[in-house]
Every structure is written in structure tokens, then in C-alpha cells.
Nucleic acid binder design. Structure first.
Lengths: 168, 168
DNA sequence: TCCGGCATGTAATCAGTTACATGATTTC
DNA sequence: GAAATCATGTAACTGATTACATGCCGGA
């Protein structure tokens, strides 16, 4: 994230919560210790910047060693994705042990959340697609289409379930 | 998993690797300690079964207290999904720092893996769909359609990328 | 002969979250 | 007056992975 311009830990956190939130998670408890380790290893340097009305900040700059390390990472073999643990999917799997009404509730809840996530991605896409690299476009499109697919099945499942409730 | 019939820790592990692998991960290092804790809490009982030619096994049975606990879980609010960390998506996001050829390599690799996962899900679906509960069908269909969506974008992305390589 | 399957379990390690502490400023 | 934003960081805890130990059987 520092390849193009320097950032603070706080800004990195916001980026992770925003664009990266679809395939990465984090918290201050990992970010700041990692940053400290990276400084110790000479991958980044900290530059203290005084501010008025706001707390001082540490602007992080990437070093040449840091650039080398990042490039080496990009050339290294792809790491396997870690599985997303989904309580929703788990419950669907055990849906036979609850009533249809409960399953419908779960579906509606996840439908709403997924729609919200999709809307966010679509907005990001329309805002930035002109300045995005082709690979980034693929990245965001995968997110978009995965949510659309999920929402499609949820909608179909809901109408089937609601039919089942009526005919019972 | 014990609601319908008793199982061993080993069988639970296999199930987690198989059907549940799309939305849950695990290892012996979590399974056996969890099982031990559940026995201590009175949610399950262990029944030692002698076997010939094979090591003895501990058949796990759910208790009434265990059933109550499971039902209480199903009635409790849905827990948020934990994010899937994806090295592939992360690299796509930073694709501008490598050549198109490298991005194409990543895409092809994930294409193959995803196709394999999709084939597995489709096979499971065709084998068991007649005996599956409607909610389970939704669960497996979400997995199937998500992989299809991912593969669709990867295929589109690949042909765009290959075009870009040629015209450069 | 070696590998995979059956079967249970532990120990060391690593990674991650949550909650806190601090404190000024701006917005509702 | 409360809450959110800016901003950095730590400590305690929880959770998970990895690798190992054990050992027999059947098949390539």
C-alpha cells in the first residue's frame, strides 16, 4: 500500500476495512505490531509529522529493501486461500432441524447484508473503474459476481421456501 | 453431526474436509480437544468400540443436554461470517506491479483449482440432491453458483489479458 | 517395501481478536 | 451532551495450525 505514497497505520486500517474487506481482515492489534516489525526489519521507515488540532501521526515510507521484499512476494508462488467460516452456510446445512420460518429469517438477513455489500462494491466500481488496472477490475468484478450469484440463489430459495410454508 | 447417528472424531474430521470444507476448516488439533471439552460439559458421551484389524474407536453420542444446546444455538442470532483471506485476490489488487504474464499465470492457477472445487460440488449435488433438505440444497447451490461466477470472470479476464499481451 | 487408510491424541507455536488507554476536535 | 473522527499503541486472551507420537492392515 506504500508503493505509490506514504501512509499512516490509521490510513492502512481504513483501506483494509474498505476496499480490502472482501478478501482480508485486520485490526489494530495486528497492524501496529506488524508495522513495528517491518520497521525493525528495515522494510519501512517512520516519519513523525506534527499536526494541529489532531494527534501527531507517523507517516510510513517504504524503503528500497521494502520494495525488493514486496516484489519477491509477488513472484513467489500463490498461497492457498484460507476458508471463510460461515455460520449462515453452516445453519443452512442443518436447516432440517429448524422450521422453514427460521430458515426464511436467516435467508432474509443474509440477503440484506449481501445486497448492502454488493451495493458498496458496485459504487466503488463505478467510481474508480476508469483509473483501475485490468487486474484490479477482475478483482472487483469477482466480488461483484459472487455476491450476485449468492443473492440469486437466496431469492430463489426464499420463494421456494415461502411456497413450502403455504402448501404445508 | 451427531443428531442422526453417532460418529467418531475421525469421521467428523472427514466430513469437515468434505461437505463442510466450503464454509468451515478444521484440524485434529481443534477437533479432539473440542470433543473432550464437550464430553466434560455433558453434551456428548464416548463409547469405546473394539475393532479387529483396525485401531479401537470412540463412538460419540449426543446427549439430551447436547441436543438442547444444539437447538439453542440454532435459535440464537446468526453470527457474522469471518472473512476469507485470499492471497489471489490480494495479488490481483496489486497486479499493476507485475507483468500481465504473471497475472495470467495466477488466473490460470485459480481457474484450475476453482473448476476442481466446482466439479466436486456438482458431483455431490447430483449424488445427494434427492435426499437433501431444501435448506441444504440452497447451501450447496450457493457454493456452486459462487464458483461459477468466479470462473466466468476469470475466463473473461483471461481473454482480455491475453488480448492486452498481444496488442502490446 | 513403502504408502495410504484407519484412529486418537498432544505440545509447541503462531496468529488473531478484543478491549483498553490516551486525548483533542468536530459533528449530531 | 454524546458520539464519531483522528491517531497510536499494548496486554490478555482465544483460537488455530503444524508436527509429532503410536501402530496395525492392505494394496501397489
Amino acid at each position: 500500500m506504500l508503493m505509490k505514497e506514504s501512509k499512516t497505520g490509521y490510513e492502512i486500517k481504513k483501506l483494509l476495512e474498505d476496499v480490502f474487506s472482501n478478501f482480508y481482515s485486520s485490526s489494530y492489534g495486528t497492524i501496529y505490531p506488524t508495522l513495528a516489525r517491518m520497521e525493525k526489519e528495515g522494510l519501512i521507515t517512520k516519519e513523525n509529522v506534527q499536526q494541529e488540532g489532531k494527534p501527531n501521526k507517523n507517516l510510513l515510507n517504504i524503503t528500497d529493501k521494502g520494495r525488493d521484499s514486496f516484489n519477491a512476494y509477488l513472484l513467489a508462488p500463490l498461497e492457498a486461500d484460507s476458508i471463510k467460516k460461515s455460520d449462515f452456510m453452516m445453519r443452512l446445512y442443518f436447516g432440517e432441524f429448524v422450521g422453514y420460518d427460521k430458515v426464511i429469517l436467516w435467508l432474509k438477513q443474509v440477503q440484506e447484508e449481501s445486497q448492502h455489500k454488493l451495493d458498496q462494491l458496485l459504487e466503488q466500481y463505478s467510481l474508480y473503474k476508469d483509473e483501475m488496472h485490468p487486474a484490479q477490475i477482475i478483482c472487483i468484478q469477482i466480488g461483484i459476481e459472487e455476491y450476485k450469484a449468492k443473492l440469486k440463489i437466496i431469492a430463489e430459495g426464499l420463494s421456494n421456501m415461502e411456497q413450502l410454508v403455504l402448501t404445508k
